[in-house]
Lab assay of single mutants.
Amino acid sequence: MPEGSASLQLAVGDRVVYPNQGVCRVSAIDVKEVAGQKLTFVTMRREEDGAVVMVPEGKVLAIGVRKVASAE
């Protein structure tokens, strides 16, 4: 991610809310080559049905992904 860009610090195992998809758990953060460029992807699995969603790390905030609020 370019320096100075806002990002959401995620780790494998974090629970997040993905708008219009529901609650997901981060299952992987991997670098993949797409069209000759190396990009970091956040892979999330929906808790409702296990569907897998992959989002480029740089788009996580723009999409509206946020961490699940704690009970505290």
Rank of each mutant, 00 (worst) to 15 (best):
V17I: 14
E47A: 03
I29G: 00
T43M: 08
M1L: 11
A35S: 13
V65M: 08
Q37E: 12
A11F: 12
K67V: 15
R66N: 14
V55G: 03
E48P: 04
S7D: 12
L61E: 09
P19A: 07
V34W: 08
R25P: 00
A51S: 10
A69P: 11
K67E: 09
M1F: 11
P19S: 07
T40W: 09
K59L: 15
V68R: 02
G58W: 15
V12Y: 02
N20S: 12
C24I: 01
G64V: 07
L61Y: 12
V17D: 08
L39E: 09
G58R: 12
I63W: 08
K32A: 07
A6L: 10
E47L: 08
D49T: 06
C24Y: 15
V55F: 07
N20T: 12
C24W: 15
K38H: 09
R46V: 04
V31A: 05
A11T: 09
A51M: 13
Q9P: 09
R25N: 04
K67Q: 08
S7P: 12
G13P: 00
L10E: 01
A71E: 13
V23P: 04
E48S: 14
K67P: 14
V55K: 02
V65A: 05
A69I: 14
A51V: 13
Q37S: 08
S70Q: 13
T43I: 15
V60S: 03
K67R: 07
E57F: 14
E72V: 09
V31I: 10
R66S: 12
E57W: 14
V17W: 15
V17H: 13
G36N: 05
D30Q: 10
V34M: 07
L8S: 08
Q21A: 08
K67F: 14
M44Q: 00
G36Y: 02
A62R: 06
V26D: 00
L39S: 06
Q37M: 12
R66G: 08
L8A: 08
A28V: 05
L10I: 08
G13D: 02
V52E: 11
Y18G: 04
I63K: 07
M54L: 08
S5F: 08
G50C: 02
Q9V: 11
K32Y: 14
D49W: 04
K38E: 06
G13K: 01
V42Y: 14
S27H: 08
A62L: 10
E57P: 05
L10N: 01
V26Q: 01
V42R: 00
V68A: 07
K38N: 08
E47R: 01
V23S: 03
G58Y: 15
V16I: 11
F41Y: 11
V52S: 15
E48N: 10
A51F: 15
M1I: 13
M1A: 13
A35Y: 09
P2A: 11
Q21K: 14
N20Y: 09
R45T: 14
A51P: 02
F41S: 01
I29A: 01
R25A: 05
L10P: 01
V52R: 05
D14E: 03
R25D: 02
Y18A: 05
T43P: 00
Q37L: 10
V55E: 06
E3F: 07
G64E: 06
S27L: 11
G22P: 02
M44N: 00
A35T: 05
V12Q: 01
D14S: 02
G22T: 05
K38L: 13
R46D: 02
V31L: 07
E47M: 05
R66V: 15
V68I: 14
R25W: 09
V23T: 08
F41A: 01
R66M: 14
V65T: 05
G50P: 01
K59A: 13
A6F: 10
V26F: 00
G22M: 05
R46M: 04
V16H: 01
E47T: 02
E48A: 13
Q9K: 14
M1C: 03
V55R: 02
